[in-house]
Structure formats: C-alpha cells, structure tokens
C-alpha cells in the first residue's frame, strides 16, 4: 500500500532522513517510533508530497507521485499541530474539509456524521472549536483526516498534550479504523502507544531506521532479560536451586524465560509478600539501540 525506498532528505547540512526504506501492507498499522527530531514528520511530509526527497522513491497505492490529485484523494493526514478553523463549529470544519475532498449532498452529511461519531463529538457538533479542550481539538483534527473515507491514513503524533481520557478515546478510534481495514501510519515518541496500536514498528533515531519489526520481535531481539523481583516475609534457607541473587528479603532474577521461572517459584511452595515481573518494552529496546532514552 505504501512503499518507500532509500529515502533521503537534507536541510542544508542537517541530514533529516537517511536512506530509509520500508513497505506497509494494506490494513496494517505501522508505527514510526523515535524521539523528537528523529525524522518521523519529514518522512510523513515526503509520503504526502509536501516535501520532495533528495533521493529515493515513494509509492502510495500504486502511484509514484503523491502530489497527484487522485492520490491525495486516497490519503488522509492529521498533522501534528491542530489544524482547524477555531471560529467555525466542529460540524462546519468537517463539512468544509469534506467539500474540499469533493463530497457533497447526502454522502457529505453521512460522512460528517460518521466523523463526528469517530471523534466522539456528536453532542458538541454545533459548538465552535475555540470552546473545545485540547483533547477534543485533537480528536476533531483526526476526524478531519478521515472524513473523506481514505484507505491510507497518516496520524502524526496525535496524542501530544492530551488528557488520559482523550488519549484512550483516540486509541479506541484508531482501533476502530484498524478493524475496518485501513492502512495507518502512526508516528509517536510514546512507546506504550506503539506497543498497543502498531502491528510493526520502525525504531528511528537521527534520520535512520535502527530496526523494523513487530513489537514482540523487537523486544525479544533488543529488549534483553526480564526481571523477576520476589520479596519474602521470611526468606527460605535454600535458594540455590533458583537463579538470581538475594539481598535481605528480596530475590532478583534476570531471565529470558520469566514465565517458566515463575512456575518454578510457585512449585517450590515459597510464600511471597510481593512478586513483580519487569518485562522489557520498546523503551528498553530504544535504550539498548541508542544508549539514550526516548524522552531525552
């Protein structure tokens, strides 16, 4: 559905995107995960034709030219900044964007109603956007990208600065789109979002893709060992049959097979005051790949 090959973009001496290649299948949610300045938005802007790559090729839905009108009709883009007309109502904004994409009459009304429902803003449809909270504006910003029913949708950091409730609504909405079989490109620097929503994730830093795989495979490959921490009321006399180290009442086990080790602990009849398992996640993956945290 979307394919980029050897993509490169520089701004003067800064290499924003360096030899990036990937393909996204139809119906897939593809994540671009990386800190600010990693080059995620530059890739999005090249996919939609706002920026011309210095080198490389882009193919969207069979076309090599994303600036073509018919290709633009098949792409929806929710930009990182909220791009809405604040003195228009939610319905007026969506109606305007629908008309710009060629919708009219009953079809326009149906799609606007659907988009309002997608953004969970049916009851605020007649209110001006400048009365909305940040989260509501974000949801409407996303609705503006899908009002014309595009098969390919690009969400550029859609949860920046939103409250937890709106964030969950946004996740639900994206999962709805995924169930409907839309192809979604999702950029974020929140690893938990990529972990929850994305089928595959490209981990980016300084314009390069460090690795690209499913979340589980990335963790398995770069996440390192899980950590089991068990705290006892009274530590048992003999713990030699278990891996790990004991300090006072606390047993710490670093393991590649945490489930099996937990089963072994349970079968030994040990009584715990507290048991915790820290699994590696994409944050750990990024840390191991770059030596830096995602939020550095």
């Amino acid at each position: 559905m979307v394919a980029v090959k050897n993509l490169r973009k520089t701004f003067n001496s800064l290499v924003a995107v360096d030899d990036v290649s990937f393909t996204i299948d139809s119906g897939e949610v593809f994540g671009l995960l990386g800190p600010n300045g990693a080059g995620k938005t530059t890739i999005i802007n090249m996919i939609v034709g706002l920026l011309k790559p210095d080198n490389g090729a882009i193919n969207v839905d069979g076309s090599d030219d994303p600036t073509r009108i018919d290709v633009r009709m098949r792409i929806g883009n929710a930009p990182q900044a909220v791009a809405l007309y604040e003195s228009l109502t939610a319905r007026e904004n969506l109606t305007f964007f629908g008309k710009v994409y060629g919708l009219s009459g009953r079809r326009l009304k149906e799609r606007v109603d659907w988009a309002l429902s997608f953004a969970r803003l049916e009851d605020r449809a007649k209110d001006r956007v400048d009365t909305f909270s940040g989260g509501m504006k974000r949801r409407l910003n996303m609705a503006g990208a899908v009002v014309h029913d595009p098969p390919v949708i690009l969400f550029d950091e859609p949860t920046v600065g939103v409250d937890p409730q709106s964030r969950n609504l946004i996740f639900d909405s994206i999962e709805d789109l995924k169930r409907q079989g839309r192809t979604i490109v999702y950029t974020t620097h929140y690893m938990e979002e990529a972990q929850r929503l994305c089928d595959r994730v490209a981990v980016m830093d300084r314009g390069k893709i460090l690795d690209l795989n499913t979340v589980d495979n990335l963790i398995e490959k770069h996440g390192g060992k899980a950590v089991i921490i068990a705290i006892f009321d009274t530590p048992p006399q003999d713990l030699s049959q278990f891996p790990g180290t004991i300090e006072g009442n606390t047993l710490r086990i670093e393991t590649m097979q945490p489930t099996q080790d937990l089963v072994n602990l349970a079968q030994a009849g040990l009584k715990f005051r507290q048991l915790r398992v820290d699994r590696p996640d994409l944050e750990t993956v990024f840390l191991n790949l770059t030596g830096r945290s995602l939020r550095d």
Binding site: G49, L50, I69, D70, I75, N77, A81, A83, L84, V100
Partner: peptide, 13 residues
Amino acid sequence: TAGTYLRLRLAPL
C-alpha cells in the same frame, strides 16, 4: 501558522 494552509495543500487542491 495555524497549519490549515498545510492541510489545504495536502487536499486535492
């Protein structure tokens, strides 16, 4: 500055 121009540039216009 508000980004709506960018949005219009991405539309089939």
